[in-house]
Computed example of a mutant assay.
Amino acid sequence: MTASSPPGLARFNAAGQDAARAALHEICTSTAWADDVLAGRPYHDAEELLTASDAAVARLGEAALAEAMAGHPPIGRPRPGDAVSAREQRGMADAPAALRAEVAALNLAYQERFGHVFLICATGLTAEQLRDALRRRLGNTAEREREVLRGELAGINRLRLARLAVQAPAGEGTARP
């Protein structure tokens, strides 16, 4: 580990292929993305890792992008036990019932229109902002939405990788990503 390497990044670089792949799978379920990111190890710093992730997202074909999206629950409905998605979607947690119902209906309309889950980097967004994004993006063409979706996936992966990179070893008081 270099002086500038955070502890999580040093562990990721030193991990065996299977362990590193499992850590990446927790971040993004696209096998192609994980393969690309793994191929760049070792990373000298977190920014190099994030840049590699962005490039890997940009190279994802349709099947790999669909595989990545399949790993994300709908907004407002994180999977039971999925602390990461629950944390990222915190803005929906205390939303009034009417707003939650509206977001659920918009999620369904989005899935019917585009054939996949609505993906957004929800960290820090309120329920109203999430609803408004759903409304806006329902008006996108399929091509425009694919571009937006790719950018959102890159943002989600960046946030999750940044948490992985700074993660302290178990027992040092830093929560897992």
Rank of each mutant, 00 (worst) to 15 (best):
A10R: 03
A10K: 01
R11P: 13
F12M: 07
N13L: 12
N13C: 10
A14H: 10
A14S: 13
G16M: 03
D18M: 04
A19E: 12
A19I: 05
A19S: 09
A20T: 02
A20Y: 00
A23Y: 02
A23R: 01
L24Q: 00
H25I: 06
H25G: 09
H25W: 11
I27F: 00
I27E: 00
C28T: 02
C28F: 06
T29F: 14
T29M: 10
S30P: 07
A32T: 07
A32S: 08
A32D: 13
W33R: 00
W33Q: 00
V37P: 01
R41I: 02
Y43P: 01
H44T: 12
A46E: 08
A46F: 10
L50T: 05
T51H: 06
A52R: 11
A56T: 05
V57K: 03
A58W: 09
L60Q: 03
G61A: 08
A63W: 04
A63K: 11
A63V: 05
A64F: 00
A66Q: 06
E67A: 15
M69R: 00
M69I: 15
M69S: 12
R77F: 15
R77M: 15
R79S: 14
P80L: 03
P80H: 06
D82I: 02
A83Q: 12
A83M: 06
V84P: 02
R87C: 12
E88T: 01
E88D: 14
Q89Y: 04
Q89N: 03
M92C: 13
M92H: 05
D94E: 07
P96N: 07
A97Q: 08
A97G: 10
A97N: 10
A101F: 07
E102Y: 14
V103L: 09
A105P: 00
A105I: 01
L106A: 14
L108Y: 12
L108M: 06
E112Q: 05
R113T: 13
R113F: 13
G115L: 02
H116I: 14
V117A: 13
V117F: 15
F118Y: 14
L119W: 11
A122I: 06
G124H: 04
L125W: 09
L130M: 12
L130C: 14
R131W: 11
D132I: 01
A133P: 05
L138G: 12
L138T: 05
G139S: 10
G139Q: 01
T141Y: 12
E143Q: 08
E143D: 14
R144M: 13
R144V: 15
